[in-house]
């Protein structure tokens, strides 16, 4: 009697499930609410989701949320764009020219590990307590990972493609524009995911140190007053901001990297 061959190829092929993701989040929120309603969780330490939603509603209708959010978004936008523009430029330079590669990477290696929050007081001394120091903190924090991601992306563009471009007599500018930049784009966009998260962390830290408006300042102020409903409402806003940014980058990847 021949033995059947046992199937051994199961597993190691995980797949995403949007319903499972949403269900998990909603389930956790429901458990949290049930725990608070039953009195297992003290609301002074962790207010229930309904209280946080109510606080968010009041903040929205009073206009206070927008006042803080708009200040934060402005700082985030300017700081991230500045750090990204300089970072991508410097990363391309590192990836393309030997003369700049070692000097720039030495500086990046020396400065990248410094926790950027530690530099906020220095930036306040340099740029003042106003917007300059906060934007500089964000830009500085975004710059280094962007340089590393871009340079890595350029390094990973197959040399064969660049030789192909040269063999057809394309100019250096055309090679960078048509071969190097599109080839490095997946790595650059992956870098965006990291740098936007870093930017949000630094934004909150900078606003906690020296700002009257902004989500970071609002969260700190609510914490000082033991106003945990508003404190967590601010944290929810930051979480949603992070989700929206990640969604936006996902859309950008889909639009620009549809060829993958």
């Amino acid at each position: 009697m021949p033995d059947p061959v046992r199937f051994r190829g199961r597993g190691f092929a995980p797949q995403d499930n949007a319903w499972a993701s949403a269900g998990t989040l909603l389930g956790l929120i429901a458990l949290w609410q049930i725990g608070a309603s039953a009195g297992w969780i003290k609301s002074v330490f962790l207010p229930p989701p309904v209280a946080i939603a109510t606080a968010l509603w009041h903040l929205t209708v009073s206009g206070e949320l927008w006042k803080h959010l708009s200040a934060s978004l402005l700082r985030l936008g300017i700081g991230w764009v500045a750090g990204t523009v300089f970072g991508v430029g410097m990363g391309l330079a590192v990836g393309l020219w030997s003369a700049l590669r070692s000097p720039i990477m030495a500086v990046v290696a020396a400065l990248f590990p410094i926790p950027k929050i530690a530099l906020v007081p220095l930036f306040i001394i340099w740029f003042g307590i106003g917007e300059g120091s906060k934007i500089a903190t964000l830009a500085f924090g975004v710059f280094f990972p962007t340089v590393i991601a871009t340079a890595g992306g350029v390094d990973n563009v197959p040399r064969g493609l660049i030789r192909m471009g040269q063999s057809f007599g394309l100019s250096t500018g055309a090679i960078v524009r048509t071969l190097v930049l599109p080839g490095a784009l997946p790595a650059i966009l992956s870098g965006f995911r990291v740098t936007t998260s870093i930017a949000i962390v630094l934004l909150v830290a900078a606003e906690m140190i020296g700002a009257e408006q902004g989500i970071g300042a609002f969260v700190l102020s609510a914490g000082n007053l033991y106003d945990t409903d508003n404190l967590l409402a601010g944290i929810v806003v930051l979480s949603v901001l992070g989700l929206i940014v990640a969604w936006g980058i996902g859309r950008l990847e889909k639009a620009l990297l549809g060829w993958r």
Binding site: G160, L161, R163, M164, G165, S167, F168, G169, L170, T178, L179, P182, G183, L185, L257, W259, R260
Partner: peptide, 26 residues
């Protein structure tokens, strides 16, 4: 437009361009 022109073993096509886009490159 390019007197000495290569054809490559590994094709060297740009994955982010269509067939027509690849041909138009040079």
């Amino acid at each position: 437009l390019n007197p000495l022109t290569y054809v490559f073993q590994d094709f060297s096509l740009l994955p982010w361009r269509t067939v027509a886009g690849n041909i138009a490159l040079p």
